[in-house]
Design a protein around this nucleic acid. Sequence first.
DNA 1: CTAGGGTTAG
Length: 659
Amino acid sequence: MWVLHAPQPFQPPAASSSPQLSCVARSHTKPPLCSITLNPAIATAKDGANNNRLIQSLCKQGNLKQALHLLSREPNPTQHTYETLILSCIRHESLSHGLDVHRHLVHGGLDQDPFLATKLINMYSELDSIDNARKVFDRTRKRTIYVWNALFRALTLVGQGLEVLSLYRRMNELGVPSDRFTYTYVLKACVASECLNSLLWKGKEIHAHILKHGYEAHVHVMTTLVDMYAMLGCVAYAASVFDGMPTRNVVSWSAMIACYVRNERPFEALELFREMLNKTNDLSPNSVTMVSVLQACASLAALEQGKLIHGCILRRGLDSILPVFSTLVTMYARCGKLELGQRVFDQMENRDVVSWNSLISGYGIHGYGKKAIQIFKEMIYHGVSPSHISFISVLGACSHAGLVAEGKMLFDSMVKEHRIYPRMEHYACMVDLLGRANQLDEAAKVIEDMRIEPGAEVWGALLGSCRIHCNVELAEKASKRLFELEPRNAGNYVLLADIYAEAQMWDEVKRIKKLLEAPKLQKVPGCSWIEVRRKMYSFTSVDEFNVRSEQLHALLLKLSTEMKERGYVPQTKIVLYDLDEKEKERILLGHSEKLAVAFGLINTKSGETIRISKNLRLCEDCHSVTKFISKFANREILVRDLNRFHHFHDGVCSCGDYW
DNA sequence: CTAGGGTTAG
């Protein structure tokens, strides 16, 4: 066995502004500490036991300052006294007093007590002072599992997963056995790390340790394992761990449901929820479960399902919980029922910034930019400070509505008025806003002037705008960077090919299509959903119609002929295959969205609104066809694409052909 | 003395 680097003697700093321990002030305001003049009777008390009791009771009363004063006169503070003091510092969020207590501990020689070292690490972790937590750990000679775990927890919380894993390795080499808590922390560390990928192998290794040490039936550990795989995108692994659990509780079920939602498999999320209700009698879903289930409904635009869940939430009395409320607002907005979202919002007794953000983004995706800005201002008026997500929401709303000047002003106000520094997403919003409005040079300038290294999001936004306005030159520049940053994202290649096709540069189209054949590319197939009588039906685009889609094809063909007589021109230029016009038209008719619309026309009553959601941006041909259909079939058609809602009515779309 | 799932955006 080898020894860790020798603990250095701890030197208590002399002045209160400590050079040894880094004292970083917390951003939020601390509760005021009482400063009552010390009662001389207490100050001179000689009885140690009495003093200890007094210090503890002063802490309980929240009089930390006086407690510390008394501590300096007490030669023999007990472990319990120190514990009380440390907890009190956490409660008051007072790092400077925490440092004082620490200094006293060192002075009295009690800092080597592993129990108190654990408490100190927790304290520094709570007070956002990870460096001090680490120093305590380094100087503690007798490291119980509690001491290790406390540091693991602290490091995981600040995202230093790699450090946790390297310490975990050392711990194993030293022969210190892990316990159930250790496993939960190190599993979390595989997710909470500076490096985003490649920790899966480490997680699997820990998984093996867990099985080897007989924790395969431990609910907490196994649930954490499910969650780790979920966070790393390994749905199959998560499911197999979940399936193998001998006992499960609400948390395990919720973790697995959340796993499906997070990894864009909402159907499976809803299915598992149903299974949970049917298979388990003794446990019932709670607010956390409901949030995930609502998210699944939202992502599918499954309005009827969502309403059922809403009823379920009301019956179970989970409706006063803020996150549930916010998710309900989002669910209704994303299912195309903005007015119901607004109604839920109006009923909320208290609202936090997340509730406001839900509503703002709701108006945004429906194209009501001005309204979104108005709600943003209302939020501030109500004393709620915007978060960085508020800005993503409101800037996105400006973008959908083409409110360039307003968006610029809001962007400027971020730093000036709210001290929120733009992140990648904000820059992407601005590039999108300007680019969509055909101010491509300005959009490119935003990228040039960025204070951080431009990532895929901003280049992607620029390329998307080049697609709309057919700017080959800028598109080539953007895609060059984009291909370096995300070489496996097929969507980017398709965008560029679209642009070349629009510009009739067929050789270039061919060249890009060659690149698209690379097997490693991640292609997202176009997919649309429609809910009919509480059942979801999904459609993927087809190049050839088969027996099942025959009826839909016939209807679409008939509609197409009628529409052509009234001025519809198929946008065959977006078909990237080298085929004749007739063939291209056939391919256009096979787009998943048209299939879903046709299915909706056949399977819903004549006055009923057709609601469709799809996973990609709506193509121009589908957009134009849906406009026609809304007029000639006299139907309201609501389509949610990747970015926003299109509300088709009487031949017009709410996006104003700006999307 | 410590532990597991969820809220808003794109």
